[in-house]
């Protein structure tokens, strides 16, 4: 297996999405193309350039420390599995 393929397979595992073999192949081919397309960017000389951290110009955008309870009726309706106040998931062994 190539290095790219290996990292791609690992990425699929990390991001936890079921993807069938055929689509994996498509993704692999696309990724090869994409990385090829990115080559000029990798080659660009950026020594001494400070990276941008934020698209916006806001700083110290704070909220006052005031507690407020939320009406949870609609929020809880959104849960696929909710039981006696808890969100439930398949059993986890710790």
């Amino acid at each position: 297996m190539t290095n790219t393929r290996e990292t791609l397979e690992k990425a699929i595992q990390v991001i936890k999405i079921e993807i069938d073999p055929e689509e994996r192949n498509i993704l692999h081919d696309d990724l090869i193309q994409f990385l090829e397309w990115l080559k000029p960017l990798k080659a660009l000389d950026t020594s001494g350039v400070t990276p941008v951290r934020f698209s916006h110009v806001a700083v110290n955008a704070f909220r006052d420390d005031q507690a407020l309870s939320c009406d949870l009726k609609e929020v809880r309706k959104a849960a696929p599995n909710f039981d006696e106040g808890f969100y439930t998931v398949p059993p986890i062994i710790e």
């Binding site: 039981d83 106040g85 808890f86 969100y87 439930t88 998931v89 398949p90 059993p91 986890i92 710790e94």
Partner: peptide
């Protein structure tokens, strides 16, 4: 974790 072991619950 539920006593019956059939599910885990999140708070």
């Amino acid at each position: 974790h539920s006593l019956a072991g059939d599910m885990s619950m999140v708070d």
